[in-house]
Amino acid sequence: MGTASEIARRIEAKDIRDRWLLSAPALIIIALCAIGPLTIVFVYSFLTPGDYGDVVWKFSPDAWISVLFQRDIFDGTWSFADAHLSIFWRSVWLSLMTTLLTLVLGFPTAYFIATRPERTREIWLFLITIPFWTNLLIRTFAIQEVIRNEGIVNALLTGTGITDRPIQMLYTDFAILLGLAYVYFPLMVLPLYASMEKIDFRLVEAGYDLYANRWKVLRRIIIPLAKPGIVAGSILVFIPSLGAYVTPRVLGGGVKLMLGNFIELQFGQGRNWPLGASLSMTLLAIVLAALFMYIHFTARRGGNTHG
C-alpha cells in the first residue's frame, strides 16, 4: 500500500540531494568570487572615505549622491556634475559605437569564414583569435604606435602628401573606439560565426530561386537566421567595452576618461573608495539593464525557435 509512491518520493528526495551536491562547487565559487566581493563593494559605497584611502566605518549617502552631483568644497552645496555625466555618456556612446563597428566589420568576416570549405574555416578562425593570445596592454601600445603623430599612418599620410601635418588621432575618442573595436573584434566574430555556421546555405539558394536578389536574401534570410549571433556578439562586445580600462587609459591618455578609468581614479589618486564603490555599482546596474534587455529580446523569439 503506497509503496510505489513512497519509492517515488524517496527517489525524488535523492535526486534533489544529488542535484545540490553536484552544483555545490559552482555555488561555492559563485558565493566566494561574486556575491562576497560584490557585497563588500555595496557596503563600502555607503561608508565615509578615509583620509589616506580606505574607509571610515560611518554611514554616509554622499558616495551615491556624488555619482551625479558634486559638493562645493567651500560652502558644501551640491551641484550637478557635468563631468561625471559626460564620462557616463562617453562610456555608453563609445561602447555602442564599438558594438556597431565590430558588427559591421564582423558580419562579413563571419559570413566569409562560414562559407569557406570546412577545413579552411579553422585556419581563418585561428587567425581571428591570434591577437587574443597577446597581452592586452601590448596590443594597445601597438595601436598607439600605429596612430601616434610620428606613427606609421601619419608617416604615410604626410609622406605621400595627402596631409601636410600629422593628424592628431591619439588621445581622442576615435583612438579609444579604434582600440576597443580592435580588442573586442573576435568577441563579435565568434558568436556570429557560430550562428552562421549553422545556417543551411541551401536556404540561400532557395531564396535566389524564389526571386530574391542578393540584398533581399541577406535581409530576409541570412540576417534573421544569424540573429542569435548578432545579439550574443553585441552583448559580448558592449559589456566589456563599457567597463574598459586599459584601452581608454593608454589611447585616451588620461584625458578622455571612461567609467573604468574614473572608478580607478577614485580608488587611487581620488582616495574616495566609497565613490569608487558606488560608481562600480552604477556600472553594474547599466550592464544588468543591458542584459535584461537581451534576455527580454531573446525570450520573445525563443518560443519560436524551440519548435
Binding site: 543551411d200 541551401r202 536556404l203 539558394e205 532557395a206 531564396g207 530561386d209 524564389l210 534570410i221 534573421p224 537566421l225 519560436n304
Partner: peptide, 12 residues
Amino acid sequence: NTVFQSYALFPH
C-alpha cells in the same frame, strides 16, 4: 522554381 531535396524551407 525548384523543390529541393532537403525542401530548404525557411525555418524562421
